[in-house]
């Protein structure tokens, strides 16, 4: 086997390996939750927690496919507009008298279509996804306004509104959290346990080498954009029902929260690195922080500053963590063997 020259006294690097950014974010989330439970009045009661989770769910839902996209080296900034468009179309069709059971599949199909447009522009024409989705971000939002104008549709069937806004008994768990957990499980499996997910890491780290290994790079990316569109539409439906309001400007700016949370969770913007666990920890870290700050009467402006600082830290953090790991490994190796 490998007859490398190992110094038997050299320490193994298991500890340095364990210090990964997604672990750090998970730990930060736990610390934040513990501190908020202890020191923030009203944080720990079930109703507040259910609000926290419910308000964070739209970000979490879109973060699932967004994580996969960023791992593969792409991004989709049109997700919030797709969500807004979905809500608007849902409202317009409801106003036109269509049954909600028909509307929801149609709107999901619309999301697939939005994603397909992004995906085809990126994979067939070879355009950078950042540029394409900034364009469709504006286009989809514009269409939403054309479809619904400045109306707000609020009179959706009450059992749907209750499902989207309600919680299970007196617990802190919103109903909608359960389907989210199922989707999360699927996304984790896809990214971390399937050949498809494995290919995404290869594409993100070295697209050329992935192509030479027979990975269908374009097809993989197209699927990701379609899945992202679908999840954005689902989020748009949830948003309209959760807040009982379908408007063209629903979910405005949500794409930045999603990208911020995903980056905070240690997904490398250059692609090829990260875990879904980290991304979801990032989502709930931001959500919990905002909730706690609101309870502490921190002004909205200050909250934005804190979020911005966190984002910069999130881009810096993994790099610093890596450098510390390297430096530590170097120092250990340099330490004289006894």
């Amino acid at each position: 086997m490998a007859d490398f020259k190992a110094d038997p006294k050299a320490p193994r690097l298991t500890l340095t390996r364990a210090v990964r950014w997604d672990t750090v974010v998970g730990a930060l989330l736990v610390v934040l939750l513990l501190m908020s439970f202890s020191f923030v009045d009203g944080f720990g009661n079930a109703l507040n927690l259910s609000f926290l989770i419910g308000n964070t769910l739209p970000i979490a839902l879109i973060a699932l496919p967004m994580t996969l996209l960023v791992v593969s080296g792409e991004i989709d900034l049109s997700v919030a507009s797709t969500a807004g468009l979905s809500g608007a179309v849902m409202g317009a069709l409801w106003n036109a008298g269509m049954a909600i059971e028909t509307i929801i599949p149609l709107v999901l199909l619309l999301g697939v279509l939005c994603g397909l447009v992004n995906g085809l522009l990126v994979t067939r024409l070879g355009l950078p996804s950042l540029a394409v989705t900034i364009g469709t971000m504006a286009a989809y939002r514009g269409i939403a306004q054309i479809v619904l104008g400045s109306d707000a549709v609020t009179d959706f069937p009450s059992q749907y509104l209750d499902f989207a806004a309600g919680r299970i008994g007196d617990t802190f768990l919103p109903y909608a959290f359960l389907p989210f957990l199922a989707l999360l499980a699927i996304a984790v499996l896809v990214l971390h346990a399937t050949p498809f997910g494995r290919s995404l890491f290869a594409i993100g780290a070295n697209e050329e080498a992935a192509r030479f290994a027979g990975v269908r790079v374009k097809r993989h990316k197209l699927w990701l954009f379609v899945a992202t569109g679908l999840m954005a539409a689902l989020t748009g439906i949830f948003w309209a029902l959760h807040y009982a309001s379908a408007r063209y400007d629903n979910a405005t700016g949500l794409e930045l929260s999603v990208v911020a949370a995903v980056l905070l969770g240690g997904i490398d913007f250059d692609g090829g690195k990260g875990t879904l666990g980290g991304a979801i920890a990032g989502v709930f870290l931001l959500g919990a922080l905002q909730n706690a700050m609101s309870l502490l009467n921190v002004s909205a402006q200050s909250q934005i500053v804190v979020t911005g600082v966190l984002l910069v830290v999130s881009v810096l953090g993994p790099r610093v963590a890596r450098q510390i790991a390297v430096a530590r490994a170097g120092r250990r190796a340099a330490a004289p063997a006894r």
């Binding site: 050949p195 890491f201 290869a202 780290a205 070295n206 050329e208 080498a209 992935a210 030479f212 290994a213």
Partner: peptide, 25 residues
């Protein structure tokens, strides 16, 4: 391929996964 850095390997990936990349099916 001729260029192992650009075409043959994903440098940041493990030896195990680089070899595994042709066995995903």
């Amino acid at each position: 391929p001729e260029d192992r850095r650009a075409q043959g390997l994903v440098m940041d990936m493990s030896i195990e996964r680089n070899i595994g990349l042709t066995g995903l099916r």
